[in-house]
Design a protein around this nucleic acid. Structure first.
Length: 403
DNA sequence: TCTGGGGTCCTAGGACCC
DNA sequence: TCTGGGGTCCTAGGACCC
């Protein structure tokens, strides 16, 4: 059986492990974009019960948060990563789960070679308790024949208190479980497919499973067919991650708007530098550097402009200098002075492992000095904090508020 | 005051070749 | 320069995920 583990209200749970005195009081985690104008990323059940929802902009939630004295944490992703690693490790230490894999920061899959339902339940309970004792995090667990069905089981484990956060979905219960699940709650069915399915009269997961295979393939492609097969109990999703990330990006929505090319250049340089650091950390190089720029999409009264440009590097590389240079030149290709920009970003792609570089014979090989310099910078920054050393174009300090 | 950020995979269509 | 089919590769954008 496939086992799916989902950490409950993960970001908030991590915060509350560190602040036990706030347990049982409403708390949320919000992303921080300087202005305090972000959105709600995670909530505990007390915060949900007073009507707050994930994705709500902070300014819309202010009143209700003040009324109920909701604690607001600023998202600290590196701290959540550490909790995630702890969960991963403590399950591995138990040595019960096969192929235990991290799917996202708060979700894991594995398999348990156990057929007896009661025995299975005992093992899952043991894993769940062990995670809670080792990390302070509570999790919900689902077991079924495929990844998609296991996700569905976890959905029920969370939804119905009677399950006590563990749902073992045996084949004999599959049909009933499918019939009670709205199609949009199926893993792999997003907005677009949902709308198309509603149009075709498909309302539940069971309705979808009852469609014939060629209809599914024709209308919903390979992805839709995979989901259909998985819901039938036929495993076909693969989870293996590539050895390294295929794209690395950083982007920010500013608290302000700006048309100042110098500000944008500085921001872009910082993002490019951060991306290059990540690129080096996984011992890879990239060939494409893309820059995106956006105006404020919520301001219908202002002219809108969204664009992007890609610079192809002649030689794949990972040194900050070249990547920043490429990013700036991409920015200059698309920057138009008459717009107010709200968000910019850098995306590195065409990533490959560092020792398989195909050098362009017409370009001088970037020299070893550059490599050594980058290594020195990474090493100092990792010891003394991010961006203690940086290149001049990144600017001396973070851009403050602009009009 | 004013709505996030970081990923992966699939596919249609264009470029190019024979 | 046009005719034309078929194959492969590449890429941009769509859709989905947490």
């Amino acid at each position: 059986m496939i086992l799916h583990i989902d950490c409950n209200n993960f970001f908030v749970s991590c915060e509350l492990v560190l602040h036990p005195e706030l347990a049982n009081k409403p708390a949320i985690v919000a992303n921080n974009n300087e202005s305090g104008g972000g959105i709600i990323l995670a909530l505990n059940k007390e915060a949900k019960s007073i009507g707050l929802k994930r994705g709500t902009p902070m300014f819309k939630a202010k009143e209700i948060m003040a009324k109920y004295s909701v604690t607001v944490f600023q998202a600290d992703h590196s701290m959540y990563e550490k909790f995630s690693e702890q969960v991963m490790q403590c399950v591995k230490d138990l040595d019960i789960v096969l192929d235990f894999t991290q799917y996202s920061i708060d979700e894991f899959f594995g398999s348990l070679p156990i057929d007896d339902t009661e025995e299975l339940r005992e093992f899952v309970q043991k894993i769940k308790s062990h995670i809670n004792e080792s990390t302070g995090i509570t999790v919900s667990c689902g077991c079924a024949q495929t990844y998609t069905l296991a996700k569905m089981a976890t959905h029920y484990a969370k939804k119905y208190a009677g399950y006590h956060e563990i749902c073992i979905l045996t084949p004999d219960k599959r049909e009933r479980a499918l019939s009670l699940l709205p199609i949009e709650d199926v893993w792999g069915i997003g907005r677009k497919m949902r709308d198309s399915m509603k149009f075709h009269g498909i309302a539940s997961a069971l309705d979808f499973v009852s469609c014939n295979e060629s209809f599914v393939k024709r209308n919903y492609g390979a992805t839709g067919l995979n989901t259909w097969l998985e819901l039938h109990g036929t495993p076909c999703i693969k989870l293996e991650h590539p050895k390294w990330q295929q794209s690395i990006s950083q982007s920010r929505t500013f608290a302000y708007m700006t048309d100042d090319i110098n500000v944008l250049t500085q921001e872009i340089s910082n993002y490019a530098s951060a991306c290059a650091t990540k690129l080096r950390a996984q011992n890879t190089v990239c060939k494409s550097v893309m820059v995106i720029i956006n105006t404020n999409r919520h301001r219908n009264d202002l002219p809108q402009y969204n664009n992007k440009a890609v610079i192809k590097l002649l030689n794949p590389c990972n040194d900050s200098t070249s990547i920043i240079k490429a990013a700036i030149s991409a920015l200059n290709k698309i920057y138009l002075p008459k717009f107010q920009y709200k968000r910019v970003g850098v995306i590195l792609s065409d990533i490959s492992v560092n020792d398989a570089i195909q050098l362009n014979i017409f370009e001088p090989v970037y020299d070893d000095k550059q490599n050594k310099l980058m290594q020195a910078i990474d090493s100092i920054n990792s010891k003394f904090g991010k961006e203690k050393i940086h290149l001049a174009v990144q600017g001396v300090k973070k851009q403050g508020k602009q009009k």
